[in-house]
């Protein structure tokens, strides 16, 4: 019985084996990070977990339920949320609206009730709004609440996307390079939030990240990939000291 498990996962695009029989397990409540040089297959693994494309081989289990064969929106319904390396927000909506869409899977009212705006709908809307306000407080987004996303600076949009993922109340949060494009100060904030998400909210985090500083700070365990295969697994310090990892990043000494 494992919380989240990837077993022999593989995908090939034509002749390129992007991910080759990768297996790992994420324990409830930990922060598990996947590192690796560019093109190692990290984001591809995320896309496979999100079922954006079907795996060529292997299986994915979440709380002992197999994900293979579901459609992408059902993954969200199970309580898996994700952020993207290049930010995928609803650009022409406000921060508040973006977070409210995160509540989609928690809306239970019927169409006719919504059209008539019955008291039950009003109560439900208030509850959704409260849940969103908690996220806004948590990530300190109050001053951007009604700003249009398209006009916000990159660093803030990154936080909004994190907020939208949190608004879905995930059990497992997938973060694809949370620090990419952030300045050192923003990266520092991001590290605090990831720690708080893990400790305070009790959300399990699966992360892809390049910034080794951030990785060492927040991760419990690290998996190193190169060319689609696993080359090391262990604590951040262990993996960083692993000769195979050093070689993958720096090349072999001549």
């Amino acid at each position: 019985m494992s919380f989240f498990q990837v077993k022999d996962l593989g995908i090939r695009f034509g002749g390129v084996v992007a991910v080759d029989r990768v297996s790992f397990e994420v324990k409830r409540g930990e922060c598990y990070t996947i590192i690796g040089p560019n093109g190692a297959g990290k984001t591809t693994i995320f896309n496979l977990i999100g079922l954006l494309y079907p795996a060529t081989s292997g299986k994915i289990f979440f709380q002992d339920k197999e994900l293979t064969g579901l459609s992408p929106h059902q993954v969200a319904d199970l309580g898996i949320a994700r952020t993207f390396q290049n930010i995928e927000l609803f650009e022409h909506a406000t921060v508040l609206q973006n977070l409210l869409i995160g509540r989609h899977r928690h809306r239970r009212t019927a169409l006719w009730q919504e059209l008539l705006f019955t008291p039950a709908v009003r109560r439900a809307e208030l509850a959704q709004r409260e849940a969103v306000e908690k996220v806004i407080d948590f990530l300190d987004l109050a001053k951007y609440r009604d700003s249009l996303v398209a006009g916000l600076p990159y660093g803030v949009r990154k936080v909004v996307e994190l907020g939208r993922a949190l608004a879905t109340e995930p059990r497992l949060l997938l973060l694809d390079e949370p620090s990419s494009g952030l300045n050192p100060e923003e990266t520092d904030d991001m590290a605090f939030w990831i720690e708080d998400i893990k400790r305070q909210l009790g959300v399990t985090v699966l992360m892809v990240e390049h910034d080794m500083n951030l990785v060492s700070r927040v991760s419990d365990r690290v998996l190193a990939l190169n060319m689609g295969t696993v080359i090391a697994e262990g604590t951040p310090a262990e993996v960083q000291a692993n000769p195979a990892v050093i070689e993958a990043y720096l090349g072999k000494a001549a």
Binding site: P72, H73, E88
Partner: peptide, 18 residues
């Protein structure tokens, strides 16, 4: 609302459970 979300970003909409 789901229709509006889909029209703005289909990828993100799918990840919201739409």
């Amino acid at each position: 609302v789901a229709m509006q979300a889909t029209s703005q970003n289909q990828l993100a909409a799918a990840y919201m459970g739409i």
